[in-house]
């Protein structure tokens, strides 16, 4: 039985269609990624699945419970780390976790043991008695990851888990997510607009654009769709049909002054490609297909990285002392 099953899940904000009839099944133990640019509808999807937002149409079952008819049971069985920090920065890390355990009715002995375990997992044990106000953005995100896990949810939702974090913190978070997906036997749903993130963590990916799923498969299969390596050429002049006589070039596209060719075994074909370009070639680069290429393939657009509106890091500074 799938742990999540959505049927025609739809959300409109006024007239604006943020999510259009999403049908999705997630099996136990999967790490499912929802990849899409800013505004694609990822957060909207998560907020509906976690019962914080009412769907305009359609519904979903989460852990066997209907999100509209049994929201309390859904909430009992899930954990979530929101896109924006949602811990109380006047409390300490420990106090935030204790509060969480109380909200989920954990017996005190179990609660204290779990607090120890999850703090250990995210390596915050030595900072547990500092106020969250004094945490860095990365530490705060780790605390909230620990908190989301603490009550043994069967599904953990992570909304842009590394948005706005520095590369080192991002590596840490990826490490924890990777470990917990195995150790804690929890199904994980990650939304992200970082290609590398979902590529590394997810067993399956749904690519979302403008409220609709455009592709759904394993990262490897999705990349296979490209059908070869990608050769990016910068040309002085772009002549029509420049590469049309090369039968190993599956696809040629020009965008933003660059020409992209899809080629099987590109490194071996490079001499022939350069011969065709002749004196017009300024630079050339070959790479294996990435999710960026996949996203481009399906939507004709690029995901711009690092353009999220998340507020990890700077936020603790903005609000400190203003309470």
């Amino acid at each position: 039985m799938p742990v999540i099953e959505t049927s025609g899940l739809t959300k409109k904000y006024g007239e604006f269609l943020a999510l259009d009839r999403l049908n999705l099944k997630v099996d136990e133990g999967e790490v499912l990624g929802l990849l899409g640019p800013n505004g694609a509808g990822k957060t909207t999807t998560l907020l509906m699945l976690t019962t914080l937002l009412k769907p305009t149409a359609g519904t979903a079952r989460v852990n066997g419970f209907d999100i509209i008819k049994e929201p309390g049971k859904v909430r009992q069985s899930i954990g979530i780390v929101f896109q924006d920090p949602s811990s109380d920065d006047i409390l300490t890390g420990y106090e935030n976790l204790k509060l969480h355990g109380m909200l989920y009715s954990m017996p005190p002995a179990l609660r204290e043991r779990r607090i120890g375990e999850v703090l250990e997992l995210v390596e915050l044990s030595d900072r547990k008695d500092s106020r969250v106000r004094q945490y860095s953005g990365g530490m705060r995100r780790r605390l909230e990851l620990a908190r989301g896990l603490m009550h043994h949810p069967r599904i953990l939702f992570l909304d842009e888990p590394t948005l706005g974090l520095d590369p080192q913190s991002r590596e840490y978070i990826w490490g924890y997510i990777h470990n917990l997906a195995r150790q804690e036997k929890v199904t994980v749903i990650i939304t992200s607009h970082y290609m590398e993130e979902v590529d590394r963590l997810c067993t399956r990916l749904a690519i979302i654009d403008e409220g609709a799923v455009v592709a759904l498969d394993t990262p490897a299969n999705l990349k296979r769709v490209i059908g070869g390596d990608v050769v990016s050429l910068r040309l002085r002049r772009n002549r029509d049909g420049m590469f049309s006589h090369l039968d190993f070039v599956r696809k040629a596209e020009t965008k933003g002054g660059m020409t992209y060719l899809t080629v099987v075994n590109a490194s071996e074909r490079l001499p022939e490609i350069l011969r065709a370009a002749g004196m017009d070639a300024v630079s050339v680069e070959v790479h294996s297909p990435t999710l960026n290429d996949v996203f481009f393939h399906y939507t004709g657009k690029e995901i711009r990285e690092g353009s999220g509106e998340g507020s990890w890091g700077e936020r603790s500074i903005t609000y400190s002392g203003k309470r």
């Binding site: 909430r75 979530i80 811990s87 969480h100 909200l103």
Partner: peptide
């Protein structure tokens, strides 16, 4: 912080 409370059971 309200989200943390609203999503609790």
């Amino acid at each position: 912080f309200l989200k943390e409370v609203l999503v609790a059971p």
